[in-house]
Design a protein around this nucleic acid. Structure first.
Length: 294
DNA sequence: CAAGGCTCCTGATAGC
DNA sequence: TGCTATCAGGAGCCTT
């Protein structure tokens, strides 16, 4: 389940292996993978052919590859199970291969070690996809104008985030998952940051003091940076990191998936609650629910 | 307009 | 063994 750190790892892999390469052929193998491209798979392939990729960019969980000299970008979202893989052209197709992008083998294609490789979008559950969009003047694909800056963005405005929390009539975990308030936080890291902050997921955002929201934001950043450290190294190895598997989940989770296991802080069994068609994991002792009607 | 709920999808797993 | 039910979840879209 890729969240911001995993997507950033993928972005770095794309920067290393794909930037500067020229597309020669595009195969769309599943229509759902281009459903955000209204003109359809054939149009997507035709318009991409012959274009040269610039350096991959990211906001929250969205990433995009600007096409040099056109003012358009290939926008990608990995959804729940998406992967972008750089594979040798002769490698067997993955079971859930959805889109294949082949590159020129010309002399101008000077990405070190990338000769004979192609870019593949693989996605089991088909929540993710690729699409082509015009860019706004600030370089953002036009369809993600509503996505807020993410907490690792140097221009993220902490004070504005706090003000927005105070104004909202919602609860803290909903706010963390609201990509128009803060982007890049998914269910897993939301639970982790709330656990670290000793905040219950149902606490109304309007009750958060400035120090509390600052602490929460700090923990969100800590959790993401820790995951990035584990997954975001060694981009010289083709197969390891372009797929965004950080290995972080197995080792370092304090909340997510730990129902009935002892809280790493106080030993109380962790609980799971059905919440918004998914789960919230929390420590009933460290993360006390808000008073009814508070 | 804001808030919250529904829905898309496939594979792993549990239960009978 | 083989079937069915349940769960996982990002974010666009719809309803209230």
């Amino acid at each position: 389940m890729p969240e911001l750190p995993e997507v950033e790892v993928v972005r770095r892999g794309l920067e290393r292996w794909v930037a500067g390469r020229t597309v020669t052929e595009v195969e769309v193998l599943h229509p759902r993978a281009v459903r955000r491209h209204p003109a359809g798979g054939a149009d997507f392939a035709a318009r991409l052919k012959g274009q040269r990729f610039g350096v991959a960019r990211r906001r929250g969980k969205y990433l995009w590859l600007p096409l040099a000299e056109t003012g358009t970008s290939v926008l990608g979202h990995l959804g729940m199970s998406g992967q972008l893989l750089v594979q040798p052209e002769d490698a067997a197709d993955e079971k859930h291969l959805r889109i294949r992008i082949r590159f020129a083998a010309s002399d101008s294609d000077s990405v070190r070690g990338a000769a004979g490789t192609e870019l593949r979008f693989v996605d089991q559950r088909t929540f993710g996809g690729l699409s082509l969009h015009d860019q706004t003047p600030d370089g953002l694909p036009d369809v993600i104008g509503h996505i807020a800056r993410d907490p690792l963005d140097p221009e993220f405005d902490d004070a504005a985030f706090h003000s927005a929390l105070r104004l909202r009539r919602t609860t803290v975990k909903r706010a963390l998952l609201d990509q128009s308030l803060i982007s890049g936080v998914g269910n897993i890291y939301a639970d982790e940051a709330l656990w670290r902050s000793r905040l219950h997921y149902d606490r109304p955002t309007a009750t958060l003091t400035r120090p509390r929201s600052a602490e929460l934001l700090g923990h969100v950043r800590d959790v993401m940076n820790a995951a990035l450290e584990v997954g975001g190294t060694s981009f010289d190895s083709l197969y390891v990191n372009v797929n965004g598997e950080s290995g972080y989940f197995d080792r370092s989770l304090d909340a997510y998936g730990r129902e009935d296991e002892p809280c790493h802080r106080c030993g109380t069994p962790m609980r799971r609650r059905a919440w918004m068609n998914r789960s919230s994991y929390f420590c009933p002792r460290c993360q006390r629910p808000p008073r009814a009607g508070a």
